[in-house]
Design a protein around this nucleic acid. Sequence first.
DNA 1: AGTTGTCAACGAAGAGTTTCGTACTTCGTT
DNA 2: AACGAAGTACGAAACTCTTCGTTGACAACT
Lengths: 127, 127
Amino acid sequence: MQDKRPTEAEMAILGVLWAQGPNTVRAVHGVLEPERSIGYTTVLKLLQIMLDKGLVRRDTAQRSHVYEAAVDRTAIQEALVGDLTDKAFGGSTASLVMRALSPERASAEEIAEVRAWLDGLENGGDA
Amino acid sequence: MQDKRPTEAEMAILGVLWAQGPNTVRAVHGVLEPERSIGYTTVLKLLQIMLDKGLVRRDTAQRSHVYEAAVDRTAIQEALVGDLTDKAFGGSTASLVMRALSPERASAEEIAEVRAWLDGLENGGDA
DNA sequence: AGTTGTCAACGAAGAGTTTCGTACTTCGTT
DNA sequence: AACGAAGTACGAAACTCTTCGTTGACAACT
């Protein structure tokens, strides 16, 4: 099973799979190598470990196995944000958000985006 | 020097030092032990490592050394949030914030708090 | 002076992460 | 059939993080 909370390298791979959908090892490596200079077998090994942990699934029908993310992006993001909230912000989500949105870190556009989203929340009411 | 980004155990200790000010090893251990059941020498060792990394300072005038945080809480929080933004949200602060504030994670009070803070930002204008 | 308690220092073990090299397999080309 | 390219599997090394046991110093008390 998977205990949530992918490591840093695992997140990089999940990022590719979430963005591009199912991919072969070679394709994932192709995306990661330029920005991270990582070996092909390293990516392969990581994917095998992630398979073990249940973070990815794979289709071995072809010689080149095709991997796809087996965890929900939103769920992982929530777990990671929750973690950081507890570890560094005493459990206060509001503190974390204010720190994230401090004008040194966030652009005016991003702040406006959040603002608009909050307005939508109020009206829509959510599910 | 320090390369920013304390580990999990280090953050727990920094949390104590930030909240309570300078403290002896025994005092830090006293706070942490109940919630984390950690040995005294473990805390000591951690503090020594953190001293090496420049995360804390210490006063050795007395037999019981007194440690204090040597890094700014806000700066660390920003570094950690920035990290998570890059690793899990494709660099989009707005995405992170929306995930953090999703009504499943954040209370209505926290959302209201952020909203009020955003209103203040708009008027105050900031630097 | 001897005993007991408190403390810092050190070393080392165990777990988890990341990284590849090497070996073996499979397929297509010659 | 032999060769080379492309793949997977495996094992192990190097790191980091966390944890604690042990040792030796110092102090306080009797």
